[in-house]
């Protein structure tokens, strides 16, 4: 993390050497000038929306993913079919068209149903991200749960546990350790995909960067900063997940 910050500083100092007419013009985001500092504050202000958006969407996706994944493990063919159709359909839709559909299309449907609900950019983005990601989380859950041997379920049955208890006390605690790393991957994916929310006017990192680029016309510096902003977010998630994994790992090193 520190190395990356140092790298960033090198870029910065290198850039400030050159004139505004040269390759780099860091003055747009130079914290020592008043204008630069205002720009930085404006850009960094996007963190709030991006983080909030990602966290809510991730939680929703984790929840929807579980609801979609559990039917896949049942013996009922209809439930299995529901899982397959949902996963195949949702994961085949590119994020951007889906975002447009939810933001511009869904209100029309709601209106025809008599609900006069305006979907704002924030919730439109959350719904889109959560649903499109849930297809992937569902597959992660399925893989994790199915990797636990069938003997565990059978043993749980013979001591009288019902389906919910088996999942809650036997399968999930074991599956969680295997699910966590790919789930973290999905979370990182959500953070990055939240950039798409800028096209429907959501004031997050990318949108703010675009706005400054339009007024200052220094795309190189601002988009470089933008990349580093995402880098910081993703690194933070990575550290958090490492920590969680360690904590879980020490608790149940016994997974044989």
């Amino acid at each position: 993390m520190f190395r990356i910050l140092i790298l960033f500083l090198i870029f910065f100092t290198l850039g400030s050497c050159s004139s505004p007419e040269g390759t780099w013009g860091w003055y747009v985001i130079d914290p020592s000038t008043k204008a630069g500092w205002t720009n930085i504050k404006f850009l960094a202000g996007g963190f709030y929306s991006t983080i909030l958006l990602s966290i809510i969407a991730a939680f929703l996706s984790i929840f929807i993913g579980l609801v979609v994944a559990l039917p896949a493990m049942s013996d009922n063919k209809l439930l299995k079919l529901f899982n397959r159709v949902y996963v195949e359909f949702i994961r085949s839709i590119p994020l951007l068209p889906m975002l447009f559909w939810v933001f511009y299309g869904l209100p029309v449907i709601l209106k025809s149903m008599g609900i006069d609900a305006n979907i704002d950019a924030f919730w439109g983005a959350i719904i889109t991200l959560a649903i499109s990601d849930s297809a992937f989380t569902a597959e992660i859950y399925r893989a994790g749960i199915q990797s636990i041997s069938k003997g565990q379920t059978e043993a749980a049955k013979t001591i009288g546990l019902n389906y919910y208890q088996t999942m809650r006390y036997v399968i999930m605690p074991q599956a969680l350790r295997r699910i966590l790393p790919p789930l973290a991957n999905q979370f990182i994916y959500i953070v990055k995909m939240s950039a798409f929310a800028s096209v429907i006017g959501m004031q997050e990192l990318t949108r703010r960067a675009n706005e400054i680029v339009v007024t200052e016309y220094r795309p190189l510096e601002i988009y470089t900063l933008l990349i580093f902003e995402y880098l910081i977010l993703v690194l933070l998630i990575s550290f958090g997940v490492r920590y969680l994994e360690k904590k879980l790992g020490s608790n149940e090193s016994a997974t044989s």
Partner: peptide, 21 residues
């Protein structure tokens, strides 16, 4: 294959059924 619950201690393995079911 025993099918003990690897994430629970021995005593928790034994208690799970009586407590929950």
């Amino acid at each position: 294959q025993f099918n003990l619950f690897p994430h629970l201690s021995v005593i928790e393995n034994l208690k799970l059924g009586p407590v929950k079911s």
